[in-house]
């Protein structure tokens, strides 16, 4: 009796919020920017609170019951994410930060405040707390080290592909083929040669190279990250206006001056975009590293898939999505500041 009452009350509140928001959107031009945020926030708070509350009540009567967020919850969360992104599209920087911080605060408040403790996903979390933090840091380490190494290799390669037309096509042919190899196949293909190398070279085995674990995951992620990086470095340099290049050469710049004072600064925004793509893509791909024993958030995802436990899958997926979205957001901000500094579009 009590649950159904809360349920229907909640349903009516959320429904009326949505209808009210639709009406306000239709009559008020500025509704999108402020009202939609307020309504989204209210809906998130209501959903989280009622879900947590419901789980606690169920738990009181039935200790072995497992209460998970249903599909509707995730879909709603996704829709609210879309609405917020849309509402913030033309908003000022400070306002954006404030709204994002507010939403993060709400989630952190509900999670750390223990309101969701009886929900399945949180119970999975408490059961694996130590492992969770360890896998997150492994995931971050693997992703960032791979992208850093890929960037280190891609810079000279992108510049060479731009300066020497003869090798341009060859570089991209190789990188494109690498990109088409499925990740699992790539991991598999790396096991044999790496195992062989590690067996026959004391140095390599001492620094931790082995057929499984970090080494194959790192190599595969580096290779995948190189295409977007090299492609954007090449395109960025190529897109620098021919007039600017001609004028610079005409003033007596040599190719080093031209590269460092003109071409790279003017290509910076595009190069950073390549870095963003590589980073987001690598954070996602790194989930597969768990398959080859390199750890990372993929561990929970594959374990959850094996146990048919959606909550465990979500324990891996949610932080993964959060890291990827944050990385994209941070990179977008850096790109915006860079292109403003360079192109001075004020």
């Amino acid at each position: 009796m009590f649950f159904s009452k809360t349920d229907s009350t909640l349903f009516i509140i959320v429904e009326s919020l949505i209808v009210l928001s639709l009406i306000l959107n239709a009559i008020c031009k500025d509704a999108k920017k402020y009202l939609n945020i307020v309504f989204s926030l209210l809906i998130v708070v209501l959903c989280l609170y009622s879900a947590g509350h419901y789980a606690e009540i169920v738990f009181m009567t039935n200790k072995i019951a497992r209460i998970s967020f249903g599909v509707g919850f995730w879909v709603s969360l996704f829709l609210i994410y879309m609405i917020v992104v849309d509402a913030l599209k033309n908003a000022g920087f400070v306002y954006k930060i404030a709204v994002v911080a507010l939403f993060v605060f709400v989630f952190v408040f509900f999670i750390t405040g223990g309101f969701l403790d009886k929900i399945d996903i949180m119970r999975e979390f408490y059961a694996r707390k130590g492992r969770f933090y360890q896998e997150i840091s492994t995931h971050l380490y693997l992703s960032f080290v791979s992208v850093a190494a890929a960037a280190f290799l891609s810079f000279p390669l992108g510049i060479l592909a731009y300066k020497y037309k003869k090798i341009t096509e060859k570089v991209f042919a190789v990188l494109n083929i690498l990109q088409t190899i499925p990740s699992i196949a790539m991991f598999g293909a790396l096991i044999v040669p790496l195992a062989y190398l590690s067996k026959h070279s004391a140095f390599l085995s001492n620094i931790g190279v082995a057929g499984i674990g970090f080494a194959p995951a790192f190599i595969a992620l580096v290779l995948y990250a190189m295409l977007p990086l090299v492609r954007n470095i090449y395109a960025g340099l190529k897109n620098v206006s021919e007039d600017v290049k001609q004028a610079s050469i005409g003033m007596g710049m040599d190719s080093i001056h031209l590269l460092f004072r003109v071409e790279l600064p003017l290509a910076a925004a595009e190069i950073l975009t390549g870095l963003k793509i590589a980073l987001v893509q690598t954070i996602g791909n790194a989930a597969l590293a768990a398959l080859i024993g390199a750890g990372g958030l993929g561990v929970f995802i594959f374990q959850g898939l094996g146990e048919a436990s959606n909550s465990l899958v979500m324990l891996g997926v949610l932080p993964l999505v959060f890291i990827a979205v944050s990385a994209e957001y941070v990179m977008n901000t850096i790109i915006l500041i860079t292109s403003k500094r360079i192109h001075r579009h004020d």
Binding site: G250, G252, R261
Partner: peptide
């Protein structure tokens, strides 16, 4: 490069470097 630094060069499309101020362009 040495020769070109001693000869002024102006082109139709001007080719001012967009990331440098007017003063820095003149000081290239």
């Amino acid at each position: 490069t040495v020769l070109r630094r001693r000869i002024g060069y102006v082109i139709q499309s001007i080719g001012l470097l967009p990331h440098m101020s007017v003063k820095d362009n003149i000081l290239i």
